[in-house]
């Protein structure tokens, strides 16, 4: 139970941005690789149910932000690789801006409580 306390649940809707960001910087990844990266980047504090990754990937694919194809992974196994599309990159830009703005706003509220 001790780990539970230190790990954070994923905020609704942020998983999509994480996936897109990761794919944008790391290039094509298979599901496991992608999950590893996300956990790595989060510094291991994110409580990612890796199974939830797949519905998210399908959702992104439906929206045309990523595409998938079957390829061969490092140790010669057939795996499905996901990569970001041009539309996906535009979406990343946009969402990153939105995110930055949200963070900035939240930040101000944080400072407000501090000064009180």
């Amino acid at each position: 139970m001790s780990t539970r306390e230190t790990k954070t649940d994923i905020l609704q809707g942020t998983l999509d941005l994480m996936v897109l960001r990761t794919l944008a910087t790391m290039g094509a990844q298979h599901g496991f690789g992608l999950a590893q990266r996300i956990q790595q980047i989060s510094g291991g504090v994110l409580d990612l149910n890796q199974g939830t990754l797949y519905p998210a990937l399908l959702r992104l694919e439906h929206r045309g932000w990523i595409r998938s194809r079957w390829g061969v992974s490092g140790n010669n196994r057939r795996a499905k690789f996901y990569e970001i599309t041009a539309a996906g990159r535009r979406q990343v830009e946009k969402e990153s801006e939105d995110w930055a703005r949200t963070v900035a706003i939240m930040d101000r509220f944080e400072r407000l409580t501090e000064t009180e």
């Binding site: 149910n49 890796q50 199974g51 939830t52 797949y54 519905p55 399908l58 439906h62």
Partner: peptide, 17 residues
């Protein structure tokens, strides 16, 4: 454990399809 419920994940995936 890390993956979470396999059946649940598959079901969620199918629901979106």
């Amino acid at each position: 454990r890390e993956f979470g419920g396999v059946a649940h994940a598959k079901e969620a995936y199918r629901d979106q399809r």
